[in-house]
Simulated assay, not measured.
Amino acid sequence: MILERLPGNEAGISTGLYNMVRTLGGSVMGAIIAVLFAGATAHNATWVSATGYNTVWILCAAISLVGAAVLVVSARIDASASNDRPASETTTPSMQHKPA
């Protein structure tokens, strides 16, 4: 989806940037989950309490719902924006009809 909106000569840099941001997001979420587990663990306990697991799963569910809402809104915005443009601007050159 990301590469569809970019010129072909920017595909490499955009793929690298996407992978870097995805890895950074995973690292940050891993740290947040570790903090939540540590906060829900008693001082001398050797395992995480059920409260820690429940907190993490509720956080993951909330983030998933927010992500789904963002996707729905962005799809609607994209659809309304493409309806406002003439057909020549919404199709790529390879999709336009070429006379025989």
Rank of each mutant, 00 (worst) to 15 (best):
H97T: 11
I13M: 04
T41G: 01
N83D: 05
G25E: 08
V21H: 02
N9F: 11
S27N: 06
M95E: 15
K98F: 15
N83H: 08
R85L: 08
V73G: 00
A50C: 02
R22L: 09
G30H: 05
T55N: 05
M20T: 03
A11N: 14
S14D: 04
Q96L: 13
I33H: 14
P99G: 15
A42C: 10
P86M: 14
V56T: 00
T15G: 03
V73A: 00
P93M: 14
E10T: 04
T55C: 08
V66S: 15
S74H: 05
L59A: 02
A42Y: 03
S27W: 12
A81S: 06
A61V: 00
H97G: 15
I63A: 03
A45P: 02
T46I: 04
A38Q: 08
A11F: 11
V73C: 09
I77V: 08
G67K: 01
R5F: 13
L6I: 03
V48W: 06
V66Q: 06
Y53D: 01
S80L: 13
N19K: 02
W47E: 08
T46G: 04
A50T: 06
T91G: 07
S80V: 08
A31C: 08
P86V: 09
L6F: 07
A79C: 04
I2T: 07
M95V: 10
W47P: 01
S14V: 05
K98R: 15
A38K: 07
D84L: 13
R5T: 14
V70L: 07
P99I: 15
I13R: 02
V72P: 00
M20L: 13
Q96D: 11
